[in-house]
Simulated assay, not measured.
Amino acid sequence: MQLEDCYFLGTITKAHGYKGELNVHLDTDEPDAYKNLESIFIEKNGLLVPFFLKKAKLHKGNHLRIIIEDFEDPETLIGRSIYLPLETLPPLDEGQFYYHEVKNYSMLTEEGVVVGEIVNVRDTTAQDLFEVNSPDGKEILIPVIDEFIVSVDHNKKTITVSLPDGLLDIF
């Protein structure tokens, strides 16, 4: 399994108890979708290594407690990232998208003006941001706000936005 075929699910943060349980912080809005995980991929030395789970139980919001089958030293996995295959993502409603899907989409205004190409979605800041390269090579940061997004066309690979007056002038 290659990293580009997977999505980041969370990070192993610490051991719990003495029976091999690990605490995973899930990076998701829907932690309930992962309470019955049977297997995961853990990034180790740049590779994704599959592990089967003996147990996966939700704990306090976005935390999952897991026990990995037949693994002698689970504490060596603390701090590692967990991934799942992209095909395991639940389907979305019309007009919704996963951040990884819109990479390389064109962003247009309602008037059809090209804002640029989405090269990334930054989700490590207080406000998630579309990182857009404008046609003249400038980096533009557009907040990911439902009110700004008019439509998403997965077939044409476009996102149409309605931006506040003057937002693009900042860049």
Rank of each mutant, 00 (worst) to 15 (best):
Gln2Pro: 07
Gln2Leu: 09
Leu3Glu: 03
Asp5Pro: 02
Tyr7His: 03
Thr11Met: 07
Thr11His: 07
Thr13Lys: 12
Glu21Ala: 13
Leu22Arg: 06
Leu22Glu: 03
Asp32Tyr: 05
Ser39Asn: 12
Ser39Phe: 06
Glu43Asp: 00
Lys44His: 08
Gly46Glu: 07
Val49Gly: 04
Pro50Lys: 11
Lys54Pro: 01
Lys55Tyr: 04
Ala56Arg: 08
Leu58Arg: 06
Lys60Met: 09
His63Lys: 03
Leu64Tyr: 04
Ile66Asn: 08
Ile66Gly: 03
Glu69Asn: 10
Asp70Val: 11
Asp70Gln: 13
Ile78Lys: 12
Leu84Ile: 09
Pro85Ala: 11
Pro85Tyr: 10
Pro90Cys: 00
Pro90Asn: 04
Pro91Lys: 15
Leu92Gln: 00
Tyr98Asn: 08
Tyr98Arg: 05
Tyr99Gly: 10
Asn104Asp: 15
Leu108Asn: 14
Glu110Trp: 05
Glu111His: 11
Val115Lys: 00
Val115Cys: 02
Val115Leu: 02
Val121Pro: 09
Arg122Asn: 06
Leu129Ala: 12
Val132Arg: 07
Asp136Gln: 08
Asp136Lys: 08
Gly137Gln: 13
Lys138Asn: 13
Glu139Ser: 12
Glu139Thr: 15
Ile142Asp: 01
Phe148Tyr: 10
Ser151Val: 04
Val152His: 02
Val152Phe: 09
Asp153Ala: 11
Asn155Glu: 13
Asn155Leu: 10
Thr158Ser: 03
Ser162Thr: 11
Leu168Val: 14
Ile170Lys: 11
